[in-house]
């Protein structure tokens, strides 16, 4: 499982971070840091990552298999 992040679309609402703090993080500027950029999401983080992606209010996160 991979997650595609549309950084142009991200407005920094941080709802993904609330759901999956080990996967998504907003830095001090409020910019999104995605831990597994360009990689497969490790199995132990997949449930949380999918939940975080589904929480994005502007649909900037997309789960791709």
């Amino acid at each position: 499982m991979k997650i595609e992040v549309d950084y142009k679309r991200c407005e920094g609402h941080g709802l993904c971070e609330d759901q999956a703090p080990d996967v998504f993080e907003l830095d001090d500027e409020g910019d999104l840091i995605y831990q597994f950029e360009g990689q497969d999401v490790p199995a132990e983080h997949q449930t949380a990552a999918a939940r975080g992606a589904a929480a994005c209010p502007v649909a900037a996160l997309r789960v791709v298999q």
Partner: peptide, 18 residues
Amino acid sequence: AVHQLGFGLGDHGCAGQG
């Protein structure tokens, strides 16, 4: 609860929700 659609979603998702 975070999946609620009350603020809309996607392109037109509420810009003022923050």
